[in-house]
């Protein structure tokens, strides 16, 4: 019951989901729709309860123990509270609901707090891509030299400056992307594909079972 039955479930579900791919009949299509669009999503909803609890415990723990900088965990809870209030505030009747709707508008919270934070974190990459290139692109070995030379050529070929240095540069860049780059990406993808399929098959066969955790 504890060990074997979950493996039987994984085997059955895996086989069914694989076979449905080959059957165009409406019965099979319906099975796929119910599984992917309903059941699997519904099951995952329940895990969120666990995740939120984990998030809560992590921060409560910091606040309780007055760990250095515990105030930040309070800020995290304030963030959750704001968003929840804005998202569900319109369901609170009367004056309070109106107040919340006016000052904690969900769209404003999203557009002026969540979205800018997201965009700014993302834009850190502009700085990091520069520092990573500076530090790592050193001609230590043949391979490293190849990496840095290709990266530099492609970088130059992407801006007008490169084209004004040599007219053919954008064409060279295009060629590198279309042939050698494509070749390596294909090679990686084929290997990864075989590895992924083998892992999937091992899951279905019950050979790979560490995702089930302890006994």
């Amino acid at each position: 019951m504890r060990r074997t039955f979950p493996l039987v479930i994984a085997f059955t579900m895996g086989l069914l989901m694989m076979i449905q791919y080959f059957i165009p009949h409406p019965i099979s299509q319906k099975f796929y729709k119910i599984m992917v669009q309903q059941w699997l999503i519904i099951i995952s909803i329940f895990f969120y309860v666990f995740a939120w609890r984990s998030f809560g415990l992590y921060h409560i723990n910091k606040i309780k123990r007055r760990k250095e900088g515990w105030w930040a965990s309070v800020v995290a809870f304030v963030g959750v509270f704001f968003m929840l209030l804005a998202g569900f505030g319109d369901r609170i009747p009367g004056g309070i609901g109106h107040f919340i709707y006016k000052y904690f508008n969900f769209d404003d919270l999203y557009n002026y707090m969540f979205a800018p934070l997201q965009a700014t974190m993302f834009s850190l990459l502009a700085f990091f891509i520069a520092s990573a290139a500076f530090r790592a692109f050193k001609a230590r070995t043949m391979e490293a030299t190849l990496l840095l030379v290709t990266a530099t050529i492609v970088m130059l070929g992407r801006v007008p400056l490169g084209a004004s240095m040599w007219k053919g540069l954008p064409k060279v860049v295009e060629w590198i992307l279309m042939y050698p780059n494509m070749a390596a990406q294909r090679g990686i993808m084929i290997g990864v594909g075989l590895g992924m399929i083998a892992t999937s098959m091992k899951i279905i066969l019950g050979i790979e079972r560490s995702y089930l955790g302890g006994e």
Binding site: F5, P6, G14, F46, L212
Partner: peptide
């Protein structure tokens, strides 16, 4: 283990 086996098995079969 039951919900895990259900989800992971389904995704594995689907991906093959």
């Amino acid at each position: 283990k039951y919900p895990l086996a259900f989800s992971v098995g389904a995704y594995a079969g689907f991906s093959i």
